[in-house]
Computed example of a mutant assay.
Amino acid sequence: MVITHNINRMKVTNKLLKNEKSLLTSMKKISSGLKINSASDDAAGSSISTKLKAQIRGLARAQINVQEGIHLSTEMSNSLNLISDNSLIRLRELSLKGASDTSGTEDREAMQNEIDQILEDIDSVADGTEYNGKKLLIPPKQTIYIQSGANAGDAFKIESFEVKVFDIGLGGINVSTRGNAVEALDKVDTAIKKVASYVGEAGSIEEGLQYFSGKLAEYEQNLTSSNSRIEDADLAKESLDLAQRNIITQATQAILAQSNQSPESVMELLK
């Protein structure tokens, strides 16, 4: 008979240690809300989750970039509309008035003064339209890239416009004579068409970025849902597991107490 080694006690102790480790793991999952608190919990799942979280963070940053791009395109649209709806339409009215022989010399001088002021206003609006230091409506044209996704190749391209007076063909227009006024009217009509096309392009840019924003939000939601299935704990299940492990721990402790008494009983008999 072997009485110096209590094998049953060793088995029960090992079982108790394993159960306490599982109990601690369940408690961590419940307290953190995560079923993966370290790579050892699920090495493959942890690796996938890390990649998903990198993509999710990238999409969140791309969403901010796209919103900044929308603000940029809105700034362009507002300025282009201001030039088109206010300045160019008023220039057309003045050119039409000057194209009539009913306009006298003083009328033409007053009209020309207003035209010169409008032309200055157009240049002022073009010069002042910028976003974070980037000029949007003056030469030279530039390409502005918006990082619109989580990966290197995801870029949305925005082309700036040139709408200063000479760029849209209105340099030096005057209504000093009927002939000059008719010529000015043709130039203004051409400028209106050009700026109108720019307004349409700016609107398309904003529409495209709004579309990207919606797709980014949808993609981010899908990835977050996928990561949740990998990483988030099922609290109901973990709570049930915790209760079961508590019961097992209590039962194992009771068995361990009994196994400790067995060798003592044998020694008593040998006295």
Rank of each mutant, 00 (worst) to 15 (best):
M1C: 13
N8R: 09
N8F: 14
M10Y: 11
V12M: 14
K15S: 13
K18P: 01
S22F: 11
S22W: 10
M27P: 00
K28F: 13
S32H: 05
G33K: 01
G33T: 00
L34G: 00
D41E: 08
A43G: 03
A43N: 03
I48F: 14
I56E: 13
Q63F: 09
I64M: 08
Q67W: 03
H71E: 15
S73A: 15
T74W: 04
T74H: 11
E75P: 05
S79T: 08
S79C: 13
N81L: 10
N86G: 12
I89V: 14
R92E: 14
E93D: 10
E93V: 04
A99S: 13
A99W: 06
S100I: 04
Q112C: 01
Q117P: 00
E120Y: 04
T129L: 15
K134E: 14
Q142Y: 05
T143R: 10
Q147E: 15
G149E: 11
G149F: 13
G149Q: 12
K157D: 03
V165C: 03
N174S: 11
A184K: 04
A184F: 07
I192E: 10
S197M: 07
E201M: 09
G203C: 01
I205V: 09
Y211G: 10
S213H: 12
E218W: 05
E220G: 09
S226I: 06
R229T: 03
L235P: 02
E238A: 06
I248W: 05
A257H: 06
S265L: 15
L270N: 05
L270F: 14
K271C: 10
